[in-house]
Design a protein around this nucleic acid. Structure first.
Length: 417
RNA sequence: GCGGGUGUAGCUCAGUAGGUUAGAGCGCCAGAUUGUGGCUCUGGAGGCCGCCGGUUCAAAUCCGGUCACUCGCCCCA
């Protein structure tokens, strides 16, 4: 067994993995751009405050899952555990709060010190979008629609179900929170250990407890939708009308909540049952309170993030460009001749492999392994006559083509395909 | 952080009433075929049996610890 391995919870993206990874990013980027969301990037580490302030002490992510360190200058820094805080920080840093709305797409690594599982790594990668400065339901709907289109294009939409819910505005949420705490406090002793802790820190999260006892207690608990004020109801109704118009099927899941204070109104997740316990493929919501927590004033926001590894596991990944031609020269002189021709072909978009040693049998074997469509062979006999052998690896058919015509000949064949 | 499962060749895995030089298939390399791949045949390389310690005359095998992977909880993408 290899003694030398990457740190726990990290993995290498070898070409096969990278192909899926890149495909997810490219697809998401293309579709995001069609909605007017342009790509940006933020640093992979920020001042610890950027995450600590909005995510708060009640969040496990910040309290025990971050990679935090002090740099040589004494600054408290943290590797980003998620993307939204950094994007909003960047928005504020650049003064873009003056020119709203702003629409961003991003992709990159995130870091959380967690126990690794399938689809859950310590360094993992996300794509995400953020729409800043649009408080209306059309913003929620646009972001969800964009997410759905990306999942469709990747071939994973029909493996997922869109769950949506509303947390209401601050007024509605606080009223409900109070009612829920009052109700559950009477049963405190019967709640699971985790939920007893949540009752003080983060009562809404009890709603999505998986503990059977908790679930039974929640049957008669107050319902969030009964505490929504008129504005909150209108917002959620409008979001649902938009989704209907876009013909995106969704189920209302009253237990879908977010623990963080800056989340309000719409929350949603695309969930699959194909990845075991890590079923959430894309998750997001409205976070109108976040910018204010970072000192950026009242800027509404809505967005989502999705795990690239999880998406890549579910997606249909198209094959890489095939090897169109492999050049085999029987000596350095002959190879040099083909070298020049190869450059011309590559400039025209063909994928051309180089034969690295003048041993025909070996090179043919390699051509077979890399699934080259054709090989060009140039040896003494051919060079003397100004031709090269062109062999199809598919059917073994072999012809001779004048060296001066070779590039044009291969390009013409390539275009026919 | 908590609980379960699994670590033997590059890959997938056999191999325990503890007992000589630890196996198979695939892959890799070479030859048959010295300038022509796939198919076939022949041969070859490649293992501190995850690591450390213990029990024993003797450990891949039993015991303890540890590391890694994996499934679930927590949390989350």
């Amino acid at each position: 067994m290899a003694k030398l391995q990457s740190p726990r919870g990290t993995s290498d993206l070898l070409p096969q993995d990278m192909a899926g990874h890149r495909h997810v990013i490219n697809t998401a980027k293309t579709i995001s751009l069609s909605f007017g969301f342009e790509e940006m990037a933020t640093p992979i580490f920020e001042f610890t405050e950027v995450f600590a302030r909005p995510l708060g002490e009640t969040s496990d992510v910040v309290s025990k899952e971050t990679y935090s360190f002090t740099d040589r200058g004494g600054e408290a820094l943290t590797l980003r555990p998620e993307g939204t805080a950094g994007v909003v920080r960047a928005l504020i840093s650049a003064g873009l709060t003056q020119t709203l709305p702003q629409k961003f797409f991003y992709a990159g690594p995130m870091f959380r010190y967690e126990r690794p599982q399938k689809g859950r790594m310590r360094q993992f990668h996300q794509i995400g979008v953020e729409l800043l400065g649009v408080p209306g339901a059309v913003g929620d709907a646009e972001v969800i629609t964009m997410g759905h289109m990306i999942l469709s294009r990747l071939g994973v939409a029909d493996k997922c179900i869109l769950n949506i819910n509303t947390l209401g505005d601050t007024e509605s949420r606080l009223a409900y929170r109070q009612a829920l705490v009052e109700y559950l406090s009477a049963f405190r002793g019967q709640l699971s250990e985790d939920s007893q802790r949540r009752l003080d820190l983060n009562p809404l999260r009890i709603l999505d407890s998986k503990d059977e006892g908790d679930i039974a207690l929640l049957v008669d608990a107050p319902r969030l939708d009964h505490y929504l004020n008129a504005d909150s109801k209108a917002h959620f109704d409008a979001v649902r009308r938009y989704l209907d118009a876009a013909e995106i099927p969704a189920i209302i899941n009253p237990r879908l909540v977010r623990g963080l204070d800056y989340y309000g109104h719409t929350t949603f997740e695309f969930i699959t049952d194909a990845l075991g316990a890590q079923g959430t493929v894309m998750a997001g919501g409205r976070y109108d309170g976040l910018a204010a927590m970072l000192g950026g004033g009242d800027v509404s926001g809505v967005g989502w993030a999705a795990g690239i590894e999880r998406l890549a596991m579910l997606a249909d990944v198209p094959p890489q460009q095939a090897v169109n031609v492999m050049m085999i020269g029987m000596s350095d002189d002959h190879m040099a001749r083909l070298f020049t021709l190869a450059v011309s072909l590559r400039q025209q978009g063909l994928r051309v492999e180089t034969g690295y040693a003048p041993h025909l049998g070996k090179q043919m074997k390699r051509a077979d392994r890399i699934e080259a469509q054709q090989v060009v062979i140039l040896g003494d006999d051919e060079a003397a006559r100004g031709v090269a052998i062109l062999r199809s690896m598919v059917d073994g058919a072999q012809t001779e083509v004048a060296l001066v015509d070779l590039v044009a000949h291969l390009l013409a064949q390539h275009k026919e395909q």
